[in-house]
Each structure stands twice: as structure tokens, then as C-alpha cells.
Design a protein around this nucleic acid. Structure first.
Length: 543
RNA sequence: GCACCCGUGGCUCAACUGGAUAGAGCACUGGAUUUCGGUUCCAGCGGUUAUAGGUUCGAAUCCUAUCGGGUGUACCA
């Protein structure tokens, strides 16, 4: 509907030889402003240096004469807004397309034939996933779904590093706990991981292998045991919130394939590499960054930036049209260097979309909880799911803007989980299902031939207009990669429906009216169901 | 110090990306139910959008400065 108007205006502009401009048709907040409104004349007035109200007059006259079936009346308001009243039948008749498309309603073929890769979570296997990881996990998953709904073929990818200092420390920690459990004298590493899970892994090793490992000087066996155990648990946790990755990408493979040395060689050829104080530096200041960065330490080990660069090059080589990195705020400073380097390797870094989400700060009883994987004073994602359930966890993480700090009050989440907005949505859905069930029991039938003219209340038209917004919302969510857009939309849709339900009865003696209203109910159920499933939240038929 | 993010009723957040009278929920006050599920609905209370300038037909949104909060600023990942 909105698109039809946008198209109409596009036509009109080109026939009138007006300059091209971004046409925005919106649903006015104030019902007195008609069904749709546009500021088009105001925009054109600026470019043409003419009176906006006069332009508005010309545009709206043309609209009325050229599209009589679509437009009922127009009105020019304020400085030059065009308010448009649409033919009610034109709106109502769109309902049928919702039913026809059903589970496909809201999808677009915008990304048809294109591939996208979304990298997220990417936590190294040094401990359980925390609440902080959870935000990235859900964001990445929902962003992936949004892209899929817009026609992209999407790979969800988890990038990890199972070598290096952190993992060494992990091995040492397990070894120490192992010896401790066997009653041997040992000193816990200073920077070791103190979580309870380390003890469990050690106990596990004793159960399986007894004390046969106690004289090993290397910690490899401990490290490997820890890694596989932790990864198993990470996957288990992810599965609980309905998350499945297509690929786990091991950083090590970049060394094995020679990609790392390749990057250094190529950058060296471009004279963007130099040696200083025994280390190898990337001349980031040459390519717009404020300072140069070490990419190979004087010890010969690369810093994380180097494999990151190689990794992104690898993604480009795989030919993705769009890449999304979902990162925590602590990576703020790192990614511009990486992108600058990748650009130098001949890749179009504009294809990489970096989503930085701010941290989740946990408070309990008003006290902030400090989080550190190593110190083991954190809340795991598993614990959070235990407390509030997977649907609430998912919704909680995407209902707010990405770059605002998420204040998660555990006490509130436990005590008031029943008041969480996710129940509001699920209840609306359950209610819709119940009406349909009830109608079926009463023997009401409805189909594509149902006469929709009884749908003429303002509240009904309003509902239908909002329903028809759904595909635009999905498109918008794709443009700005903000899942929260969808949450906000569903919230207002459910709100409108609850209001309608409180005032109007669907199933009555009036069979014609009932049939028409049942179509509306079914369309609502479809949109809510589709929206919730896009967010990965269960649309329950009963609560 | 520098870089990035944030600042909207008592609290948690919206605002169609520059649009018309800044909206919801929680909390507080008062109401609604012989009905398709009250986990619902209606009404009231509550705002100079941190502050001061600027840009323009029009600013919570863009620019500048100031104040306050967060994150980072490694030859850690």
C-alpha cells in the first residue's frame, strides 16, 4: 500500500520533470492527518526554490486524477504536507494477500542470489558463555534471520582461537587443579582461570585416566581435555537458545594454509610493513589511522590483528556479498585497523558491516556484578536461561538499541519475569489462536471469497494498515541491521489488537461480520507468528 | 589527554533516520469483566528531550562548545 503510493509519486515526479528525491511516505501518528502522509513537497521546495504548498497542490491534484482507485481524498496541511486518505476497500482487500502468502508474508527477494556471512559469538574456549556473549549471540542470530528473510543466503560463523597464551593458561589451570585433587603439592598459576568448571574438568580427567597424567611436564593433555569439554558446553548452551552455526572457523587454519605469511608479504610489497625494536609493524598511519600497530611481536608471535586481517581476507575470497561482524564494545579500537589493512589487500571493506554492541551490565540487588571469565565472578548464559527462560532471554537482548548499555537487573528479571513484554506478545498470539479455534467449533467458515466490507471500523482499518507495514519493517531492519525495529513493531501490533479485542467481539451471530473479522484475526496471527519466529521466539498457541 | 558510544517523565525504553501535539511499559491514583482466556482494557498523574549556541519552513535526531556516564587507548584476545 505504502509502496503503491511511493511508486505513484515516483511516476508523477518524473512526468512533471521534478528532480529525483527520496520519497518518504509515512503513517501519521495523528489520525486527522489521513491514512498516509508525505513531506515530498517540502523536499522538492528546497531543491526548486518554490512555494511548498503550491507544489503540494500540483502533486496532490495529479495523484487524484491519475490514481482514482487508490486515493479517496487529499489534503494539504501545515507548511506543505500532503495528507492522503486511501480508498478503504483498497486497504482492506490487501488482507487476502497476507493469508495467501502466509508464512512467506514479510519476506522479500532483495538479496536474491546474494550471499552473506555473519560472524558472531567467537568466544575462545576458555570458559562458559557469559551473559555478555549472550547479547552478541542473539543479535548475530537475529541479524542472520533478517538477512534470510530478505532473500540472502546466510552463513552463521563462529571464529575461535585454540592456541596462544590464554589457552596455555587454561591448560596450566586444569593441570594444577588435577594435581590438587590427587593431593599433590601444586601452586595455582597466578593468572589462572578460577572457575568451578576447571575443577570439574580435572575431576573428569581423574575419573577417566586416574593419576596417569600426573608426571606430564607438558599441559597439552589438560588443555585439550579442557577445550573439548568447554566447546561441548558452549554448543549445548547455544542450542538451548535455538542457535546453530554453519561453520566453526579455527584461526589455526590460517597459519596452516599460509594465509598469514601471505598477508605480511603482500603488505610488505606495498611498503606498509616495517621492522622496529625487533617487532613487525603495520604502517596504519599511512592509510588513515592515527598510529602504527605491531602485527608480529618481537617474540615472533603475531598479535591478534594479523590473523584477523587474514581471516577477513579469507571471507572475501569466499565471495560473500555482505559480511557482518558482531562484536562487543571492547573491540572498538581494533576493527578499523583490520579493515584498513583488508582494504589494502584489494578488498572492498564497505562490504563488511561491523556491529558493535555495548556491554551488558548486570546488577543484583542494586549492586553491579563485575564480570571476568578468568576470575569466575560472572553470570553464565546458562544461569540466565535457567532463571528467565529462552524466549525472554532472546527478546531481552534484541528489544533495545544495539549501542546502548543494557542494564540487566537480575532481581527484577527473576521477580517480574511475568511482566516481561515477551508475554504480552505471546499472549496476543495465543488469544488469536483461541479465537480461531473457537470459531471453528462454532462452525464458522471463511475463505478468499469472504466479503470483507464489514471491516469498516477505524480500529480495524488501523490494524490492517499496521499489518501491511510488516514487509516494510523487515526491509528497514535489513537496512539498518537493527532487530529492535521488529520488536517495537510487534509490540505496537499486539497492543492494537488487545485494544480491539477488549472492545469488539469477533465471533457473533452475524455470520458475515464474523467471517470478515476472522480473516483479520488470521492475518494478525500470521504476522505475529512470522515476527516472533524471525526473532526466534516461540509463538505459543496456548500459555 | 585522545578515540568511540550514550544522556528523553521517579525507573526501563520508543520515536518510521530531519516532520506535524515527543510515545509505550513499570510505579502511583481511579475505573472496566454474565462474553472469543483479565497474563487484558480505559482514564489520570508525570517532559524546557543534560546545558548553551548554530544550521532551516521544521531539531530528541545534524554541527559546535560545555557538563555527566560508559568502553577502549598493549609487542593481551
Amino acid at each position: 500500500m505504502k509502496n503503491a503510493l511511493t511508486e505513484a509519486f515516483r511516476e508523477i515526479i518524473s512526468t512533471l520533470n521534478y528532480p529525483e528525491t527520496n520519497i518518504v511516505v509515512q503513517l501519521p501518528k495523528n489520525p486527522e492527518h489521513g491514512d498516509f502522509a508525505t513531506n515530498l513537497a517540502l523536499q522538492l521546495a528546497g531543491k526548486l526554490d518554490e512555494n511548498p504548498r503550491e507544489i503540494a497542490q500540483i502533486l496532490s491534484d495529479k495523484l487524484k486524477t491519475d490514481y482514482p482507485g487508490l486515493v479517496d481524498s487529499t489534503d494539504i496541511a501545515g507548511p506543505g504536507f500532503i495528507n492522503i486518505s486511501i480508498n478503504k476497500n483498497a486497504i482492506v482487500s490487501q488482507l487476502l494477500s497476507v493469508l495467501t502468502l502466509n508464512k512467506e508474508y514479510g519476506k522479500s527477494n532483495f538479496g536474491e542470489g546474494k550471499t552473506a556471512q555473519v560472524e558472531f559469538v567467537s568466544a575462545n574456549p576458555t570458559g562458559p558463555l557469559t551473559v555478555g556473549h549472550g547479547r552478541g549471540a542473539i543479535l548475530g542470530d537475529v541479524i542472520s534471520s533478517i538477512l534470510q528473510w530478505n532473500g540472502y543466503k546466510v552463513d552463521r560463523e563462529y571464529y575461535y582461537n585454540n592456541a596462544g597464551r590464554q589457552m596455555h593458561r587454561l591448560g596450566e589451570s586444569v593441570k594444577s587443579r588435577y594435581l590438587e585433587l590427587l593431593g599433590e603439592k601444586t601452586e595455582f598459576p597466578e593468572e589462572g582461570y578460577e572457575g568451578e568448571y576447571i575443577v570439574e574438568i580435572a575431576q573428569n580427567l581423574i575419573d577417566k585416566k586416574g593419576n596417569s597424567l600426573k608426571d606430564l611436564t607438558e599441559n597439552t593433555a589438560f588443555k585439550d581435555a579442557a577445550e573439548s569439554n568447554i566447546f561441548l558446553n558452549i554448543e549445548k548452551t547455544l542450542a538451548r537458545i535455538g542457535l546453530k552455526f554453519d561453520t566453526f572457523f579455527n584461526e589455526n587454519s590460517l597459519y596452516d594454509s599460509g594465509a598469514i605469511t601471505n598477508v605480511v608479504d603482500t603488505l610488505r610489497q606495498k611498503k606498509l610493513i616495517y621492522e622496529k625494536e625487533g617487532a613487525t609493524w603495520f604502517k596504519a598511519s599511512e592509510v588513515g589511522r592515527d598510529q602504527d600497530r605491531v602485527i608480529i611481536k618481537s617474540s615472533g608471535e603475531p598479535t591478534y590483528r594479523l590473523p584477523d586481517i587474514a581471516y577477513h581476507q579469507n571471507k572475501f575470497n569466499r565471495g560473500y556479498d555482505l559480511m557482518v561482524d558482531v562484536l562487543g564494545a571492547d573491540h572498538m579500537d581494533a576493527y578499523p585497523d583490520v579493515l584498513a589493512a583488508v582494504e589494502q589487500l584489494g578488498c572492498d571493506s564497505k562490504k563488511v558491516n561491523v556491529i558493535i554492541h555495548q556491554f551488558v551490565t548486570l546488577t543484583e540487588d542494586g549492586e553491579p556484578v563485575k564480570m571476568s571469565t578468568r576470575k569466575a565472578n560472572y553470570i553464565t548464559l546458562d544461569e540466565l536461561i535457567d532463571e528467565v527462560g529462552e524466549d525472554v532471554v532472546r527478546y531481552f537482548f534484541i528489544m533495545r538499541g544495539i549501542n546502548t548499555h543494557l542494564n540487566f537487573d537480575m532481581t527484577l528479571a527473576k521477580d517480574e519475569s511475568d511482566e516481561n513484554p515477551v508475554f504480552y506478545l505471546q499472549y496476543a498470539h495465543a488469544r488469536l489462536c483461541n479465537i480461531l479455534k473457537h470459531a471453528e467449533e462454532q462452525g464458522h467458515i471463511f475463505n478468499e471469497k469472504t466479503d470483507l466490507s464489514p471491516l469498516n471500523l477505524d480500529s480495524e482499518i488501523q490494524l490492517i494498515k499496521l499489518l501491511l507495514e510488516f514487509p516494510n519493517i523487515i526491509g528497514k531492519a535489513k537496512d539498518n541491521l537493527e532487530p529492535q525495529t521488529i520488536a517495537t513493531y510487534l509490540q505496537s501490533l499486539a497492543g492494537l489488537f488487545h485494544k480491539y479485542y477488549a472492545k469488539e467481539r469477533v465471533v457473533t451471530e452475524d455470520r458475515n461480520k464474523t467471517s470478515a473479522r476472522l480473516i483479520l484475526v488470521q492475518a494478525l496471527q500470521i504476522v505475529l507468528n512470522n515476527g516472533l519466529s524471525l526473532l526466534g521466539i516461540h509463538a505459543l498457541e496456548r500459555m
